[in-house]
Design a protein around this nucleic acid. Structure first.
Lengths: 191, 191
DNA sequence: GTCTATAATTGGATAGAC
DNA sequence: GTCTATCCAATTATAGAC
């Protein structure tokens, strides 16, 4: 693995674990086992390195999302597959956590890929819910864009609850809760 | 207002705006318009000052929650009143944001009041949803503790979406979405 | 109780050897 | 391309005057 790749990987891990502000160049160099000069040879500084990482995360997350949400099965099956995907809830979302990092939110270049990722998920879920309503799978009694936002928010908020509780239990409960409510929207749900 | 109170207020604002790690003693002293020595006279350091603030936030948030969730009206009315309460979504939750601050989560004393606050809300909403099911207001087709976690998570995640979008729109959509799903659980909802 | 001065450490970046 | 040495500012805390 190249020095550049080692820098990217170390930064990716640290941004996930501690965020941007709390990650120092020294932390990155120690974890990548690289000298001071190498980082400033490959990148103009900490912000440029972080930007490369965050843009890579955006691409990977959108790709993974399309694999799950654009797969086969009913809309409900695809959404529940997405929500129940195996995750380390105590680590949280590598994108979502950056929204609580002021330094990231105040830097338009860094905020942009975070924005694009979460927007993509809301839009993709909106399209899937609309499809479900059109096909008669779901009742027409909810607004797809609203429920899409609620689904993404439940995931993001589930991580918040897990971290506060130092336990995955409230994350799992939140996911289960939104699925129970969504299941009741299926026309064959018997309600 | 006493020097001590000014220190507390300045710290409360800064913890909400930037979190704990990104707030320096100097930031606090500047905003409180207090000299270096005063802070170390009233508190043992930054952590002790933050603890006083976070515990105060916990007490205020639980008190405000009981006012709304323990008020009059049906369970649905009280929950929608809580969710639709006027909030500055771009500022987010002063407690929730601390869960993304590693320094806070790794300090048990600081994490404890954050945990207690979010736990209290989940438990209070669970009790309210159970009450609604017992009274025949809600169907028995959902697990109260799951939906309670989903409601709190939607709020917390709604703030994440708002910050990423630099707009309150996705926050409002997420709240609307969870309310649309919950409304369908009312026995007189016609679904 | 509050102030200014200062210390020790870390954060982020640069210089220049190899 | 990578390294070590170094620089300047900011962070957190202490000392000691008033």
């Amino acid at each position: 693995m190249s020095t550049r790749e080692r820098l990217i990987d170390a930064t990716r891990e640290l941004l996930w674990e501690r965020g941007y502000s709390a990650t120092s160049p020294r932390d990155i160099l120690d974890r990548a086992d690289v000298g001071q000069g190498s980082m400033y040879h490959h990148f103009s500084g900490k912000a440029a390195l972080a930007l490369a990482v965050i843009e890579g995360n955006r691409d990977a997350m959108i790709s993974a999302g399309e694999d799950t949400l654009g797969g086969s099965g009913t809309a409900f099956e695809r959404i529940s597959g997405y929500l129940l995907r195996d995750r380390d809830a105590l680590k949280g979302c590598k994108m979502g956590r950056l929204t609580e990092d002021s330094e990231v939110m105040e830097n338009d270049a860094l905020r942009q890929p975070v924005h694009e990722t979460l927007l993509w998920y809301r839009e993709r879920l909106t399209a899937l819910l609309e499809e479900g309503q059109r096909d008669g799978e779901f009742r027409a009694s909810f607004v797809p864009a609203d429920v899409a936002a609620a689904i993404v928010a439940t995931l993001q908020g589930g991580y918040v609850l897990a971290k506060a509780d130092n336990s995955v239990a409230p994350y799992s409960a939140a996911i289960a809760g939104v699925l129970e409510l969504l299941a009741a929207q299926r026309v064959d749900s018997g309600s």
